[in-house]
Structures are given as C-alpha cells and as structure tokens.
C-alpha cells in the first residue's frame, strides 16, 4: 500500500495551472524523484503536500488520511517533513537549537513546567538534547552544534536542514533540490547520505532534483512533470529512454539522437545536450 497517494491534484495561480490533474503515489520505504524543466510544478506539488498551498481539486491521502485541508503543523504531526530549495534554517539560532525546535512536536513539556523546572521537563530536555546531539552526529556536524546556522558552510546548512527535518521523526521526507549549488564531490556525498537515510531509518523519501547523476543513481521511481502534468513515470532506465521526456528537455527533433546516454538529459535549462557535471543553478 502506498504511503502517500495524490489523486487528480490541481493547483492554479490565477490563470496559470501550476499542477494539472496530477496522480502520484509513493511506496512505503522507497526513494522517488520528481524531475522536470523549470516551472514544471515540482516545488508547487511539494507545497501542496506539505500544506503550504491549498489545492483547487483532487485529494492527497497520507497513510489513509486525507491531508489536503490540514494546517502545516498538523501535516508535520502526521509525519511529513520537508527541506527547502533555498535553505530556510532559523538563521539566528544555533545548529543545536535548530534541531531542538525540530523536535517540538515530540517534546511534551508545558511552559508552566518549564518555569517551575519540574523533573519531567528536565528529563524531557535531557532527552531532546541527547537526540539533537545524535542527529548532529548523524549528519556529520558533531562539533558544530554551537555555531549559528547562518555561519555554517553551505553544504553543512543543507545537512542541518535535513537533520532538522529528521528531528520530527518523519515517515515521509520531502527534499527539495538537496544538492543544489553543490560541487560533484559534495553532491555525491549527499546522494550517499540520502540512501543511508532510507536504509538506516526506513524513511520514505521524495526528492526534487535537477542533477541527473543523483536522480538516476538513487531513485527507484522517477516522475517527470512538464507544465504541471505528468508526462512519464518509471524506473531510471525507462525514463532515460522515454521519447516524451527527451522532447520535454531537449525540444522536438532531438529524441532520436541523444536517447541512449544516461547523462544526456541535461540538468535544468542547459540547451546543449552534453554532460552536466557542474552545479546546477537553482530554479525559480
């Protein structure tokens, strides 16, 4: 049974239909990717799942429960965590505090207890700090807990954002371009980290990604969006050879020439059909 099922989801901005009648499923414990050219509606779909946008039509069911009318915090409570395309950490909090906030829902201490310093609150806080330290170690930031989030290097910020999302003990983790702005070595690390996440924690992961090496390397299922519509879905091999996908990326007429090569689908809006090793520019 799929963990998340979206049926005929439609999201419009004025006259623009950003997500159009989209059906989508993700299996428990799998890693799936959403790809597509700029403006294809990938992040919009993320925002619909996480409750940032109200959808006009359709239904999103998470673990048997419709979530399209829930508030963001309620969706988080159900076990959906996300990261953001342009990193959105709490910049003036330390790395440690970012993770502690991430555990908000799982801590149970009331403010009155905190003022009185009750035993329960102290234990709760102790557990929270231990868990935060564990997560910092897990993402490789063990010595950086006291640094302000805004002072961390870029790659560390991405990892901290993942750690903050993990602090909510999510069952579904939405990663929006986790390797954006990273060099090949860093994005390789991130890829391994994502796989490690799923293998270690069993978290179901849905990612938006432009870097084809990452996408093809770890996804078990890839969904391709174009102008808000699903144009293809399948395993990496199926997607690489799908003429519709190649057309969407390269334009009409190139389908016959570049179809066989794994890296032929260029990252983002690069128009030439060569390999795309460099960091991909963030899309709007």
């Amino acid at each position: 049974m799929p963990l998340l099922t979206a049926t005929a989801v439609t999201k419009k901005f004025g006259g623009l239909t950003a997500v159009n009648n989209l059906d989508f499923e993700i299996e428990q414990g799998s890693i799936a990717s959403l790809i597509g050219p700029n403006g294809a509606g990938k992040t919009t779909f993320f925002n619909c799942i996480a409750g940032f946008y109200q959808i006009e039509a359709g239904q999103i069911v998470f673990d048997g429960q419709p979530i399209q009318r829930l508030r963001r915090d309620q969706i988080a409570h159900l076990g959906i965590s996300r990261t953001y395309q342009n990193i959105r950490l709490f910049a003036n909090m330390t790395a440690m505090e970012n993770i502690l906030v991430g555990q908000h829902y799982h801590l149970r201490s009331s403010w009155i207890g905190a003022v009185l310093g009750t035993k329960g609150v102290r234990e709760d806080e102790g557990r929270a700090h231990r868990e935060a330290r564990r997560l910092l170690r897990f993402v490789g930031l063990q010595n950086k807990g006291d640094l302000l989030a805004s002072n961390l290097p870029y790659g560390d910020q991405r990892r901290l954002e993942v750690a903050r999302a993990l602090a909510n003990k999510p069952r579904l983790l939405l990663l929006d371009e986790p390797t954006a702005g990273m060099n090949p070595a860093e994005s390789q690390q991130m890829t391994e980290f994502i796989r490690h996440l799923r293998d270690e924690l069993g978290t179901t992961i849905l990612l938006i990604e432009h870097e084809m090496r990452v996408v093809m390397g770890i996804s078990e299922k890839i969904t391709v969006l174009h102008y808000g519509q699903k144009i293809a879905e399948g395993t990496p091999i199926q997607i690489q050879t799908d003429p519709l996908v190649i057309e969407a990326y390269l334009g009409r007429g190139s389908a016959g020439t570049a179809g066989h090569e794994a890296t032929a689908i260029p990252a983002v809006e690069a128009t030439q059909g060569g390999a795309s090793a460099g960091p991909t520019p963030a899309s709007a």
């Binding site: 940032f52 915090d73 969706i75 988080a76 409570h77 953001y84």
Partner: peptide, 9 residues
C-alpha cells in the same frame, strides 16, 4: 512558515 511546517502550532 517554516516554524509551522516543523510542527509548531
């Protein structure tokens, strides 16, 4: 927005 998405009411 992020605070709410993290589960803060």
């Amino acid at each position: 927005d992020v605070a709410e998405a993290i589960g803060i009411n």
